[in-house]
Design a protein around this nucleic acid. Structure first.
Lengths: 138, 138
DNA sequence: ATACAGTTTATAATGATTCTAAACTAGTGT
DNA sequence: ACACTAGTTTAGAATCATTATAAACTGTAT
């Protein structure tokens, strides 16, 4: 229970009350070495299996949306029928494996410098994201 | 009516019967100089205003899906709540204006060569797409 | 013309997500 | 400890985009 304090701080500093539900979701999402890619449904299933006390689906949505708004999660656009989220909120890119329907992180070093040569007056660039779709070779 | 024959050929060669509805949608989508970006809802509204005889929403969906499957339209991923389509099916990139919520084409020349340095065994790259989000400067 | 497969259509169904409003809880002040 | 208030959670209803259904219609090959 001691390392919950990290998440309690994280939540408080984002103006979110550290509730039981949010702490559980934090642990699941952020207490890991590697990036985690997920859909709401997948996250909800893990929560159901991991904890006896159920967390309402509405809360899962609320929490993910709150984390997204606060910049702790990033929505990744790969498919129009579901939302995918990423715990890696840094500027980075993705492979999307079309066979496994699975996301793989690509960091800036994996993608050569991208030089946008067109500019629009009065507009600034907020982000540049590359999506590389891959599939089995045969 | 004479230039309908272009669309009739286009449809036939894709194995789609040239129906009244499909020809109307073809004219709307492909009879223009510049790329056209749209959502189903937007397309449906234009059709409603342009023609007295109504085309069922289901047909609009069916037709757009058929055109997508046949490679005449491309789905663009910018937002998880709606599907955006593009009549430019060549490999190209986009600006997305977050204020106007509007897509702008970027061709390959506008985006420097992209060099993916990571490879996965047994996988080939199907497509590389860059999405550049832009917003007002102030 | 006839027949049949492909299309269109209105409507129902689905599925992801958001809304609602009542019950609950964390944090603050007493 | 106690109570107050604003923020949360919850189950279920509502919404919205999209897809399925199945009956009516149409293009085309014979």
């Amino acid at each position: 229970m001691s390392n919950n304090s990290i998440f309690i701080k994280k939540l408080r500093s984002s103006g979110l009350r550290p509730t039981k539900q949010r702490i559980k979701i934090c642990k699941l999402l952020f207490d890991r070495k590697n990036t985690f890619h997920f859909t709401i449904n997948y996250l909800n299933n893990i929560l159901k299996n991991k904890y006896a006390e159920k967390i309402s689906l509405a809360t899962v949505y609320n929490t993910v949306n709150a984390f997204k708004k606060k910049g702790h999660l990033k929505e990744i656009l790969i498919s129009s029928d579901k939302s995918y989220y990423d715990t890696n909120v840094s500027n980075h890119h993705h492979f999307f494996d079309e066979n496994k329907r699975e996301l793989i992180d690509l960091d800036d070093k994996d993608v050569g410098k991208i030089n946008i040569k067109k500019a629009l007056p009065g507009k600034k660039i907020n982000s540049i994201e590359v999506l590389v779709k891959i599939a089995n070779n045969n």
